[in-house]
Design a protein around this nucleic acid. Structure first.
Length: 369
DNA sequence: ACTATAATAT
DNA sequence: AATATTATAG
């Protein structure tokens, strides 16, 4: 397996999803908290949006949740955010007028094409038989995503697949039933992601089209600071459906994770040649004075910058499989990183590492954004 | 876990 | 007001 591994990494790099595939996913993952923490505001707000923002503001992340929320994961986060911008932003917005966070319903999930893509990928990797809500949810590893969310979506997706099968199989006869206008309109989301071969034709293997490791790896292509990402997204039309997604707040969920975002964005024009990723080979090094400066130099210079993380930094862990990072142990303080995690390792083992072990693991690469 | 149906958003 | 999308009850 040694040799395979050696070849695997370069290939992994080549097959990275395009930025546009990844970017919108962060819409559901970047929380209003984070946006507020970065003092991001809505550039063009319509009346409707304002209404939504009102709903969005009560985002009570209870302080207790940060510290020891779940039943005892990792020791205790060393970093103590003394009511910095983060805390004030979160708490400020959260306490604006109301507290009964636990009585609030979580907003309905919006299945963006990107989220759906991830869903399809997960189902593909699991195989249709193993693809049940729980497993799918785990594989997707999207924070805040519930089993019910997935179940509901899966239900609809199955109906969609059934119709597709009926159409392709009984083609002429159209035995399955006519395609109504409602169907066509309903399916546009599903049409956005290619339906894997074997979904429609179970039992028949497709040529060279295997779904190997679920590679939800975030791309290094271009990354920006969270603030910039959010701002960019808000400029997009997506803002209209910026359905506030509140997740895992208030200590209700013992296993509730700290929210993490998938932060990516592609530069509008000139793209510097992709710099080969440095994989493994030791602990990350280099220093990072302040992230804004680094951001500029990084984007201008073509890329990312290897950095040495410190415990006080924010970590956005992008991972797949069953690995649910223990983000409760990480407190937001200084800088923002993305952790690239190679999927070759055993996730369960990885997840058992303590935080300090985590940041020194050779299979993790940190890039400052 | 699956399906039907209610609730909600557009 | 209609219907598309997600939540929830069975």
């Amino acid at each position: 397996m040694r040799e395979e591994e050696a070849n695997w990494f370069p290939r992994w790099e080549e097959e990275l999803p395009s930025p546009e595939e990844l970017m919108p996913l962060s819409q559901t993952l970047i929380t209003p908290d984070l946006a507020l923490a970065f003092d991001i505001r809505n550039p063009n707000s319509s009346p409707q949006q304002q209404q939504q923002q009102q709903n969005q503001s009560p985002i009570p992340i209870s302080p207790g949740q940060l510290g020891g929320g779940g039943g005892g994961s990792i020791p205790s986060p060393p970093c103590q955010p003394h009511s910095s911008e983060f805390e004030s932003a979160e708490l400020g917005s959260g306490n604006l007028g109301d507290e009964p966070a636990r009585t609030l319903k979580r907003p309905r999930l919006v299945w963006t094409p990107q989220l759906h893509k991830r869903f399809v990928d997960a189902v593909a990797h699991l195989g249709i038989k193993n693809a049940v809500p729980k497993t799918i949810m785990q594989l997707m590893s999207v924070d805040g995503l519930t089993r019910e969310n997935v179940a509901s979506h899966l239900q609809k997706y199955r109906l969609y697949l059934k119709r597709m099968q009926g159409l392709s199989a009984g083609g002429a006869g159209n035995g399955g039933g006519p395609l109504s206008a409602a169907d066509a309109a309903t399916d546009h989301l599903f049409a956005s992601a290619p339906v894997p071969h074997h979904f429609l034709h179970p039992g028949r293997p497709a040529p060279g089209d295997h779904y190997l490791p679920f590679v939800p790896v975030l791309h290094h292509q271009q990354q920006m600071a969270a603030a910039a990402v959010i701002a960019a997204q808000q400029q997009q039309q997506q803002q209209q459906q910026y359905h506030h997604r509140q997740v895992g707040q208030f200590g209700s969920a013992p296993g509730g994770q700290f929210e993490h975002g998938f932060l990516t964005r592609q530069l509008p024009s000139q793209q510097p040649p992709p710099q080969p990723i440095h994989r493994m080979g030791g602990p990350v090094s280099a220093q990072t004075p302040n992230y804004v400066e680094d951001l500029e130099s990084a984007t201008a210079g073509g890329g990312r910058k290897k950095v040495k993380p410190v415990k006080e930094d924010i970590f956005y862990v992008y991972s797949g499989q069953n690995f649910k990072p223990d983000l409760n142990a990480v407190r937001p303080c200084l800088r923002v990183y993305i952790i690239f995690m190679f999927l070759k390792s055993n996730f369960l083992q990885v997840s058992q590492h303590s935080f300090s072990d985590l940041i020194s693991m050779p299979t993790i690469i940190l890039y400052e954004i």
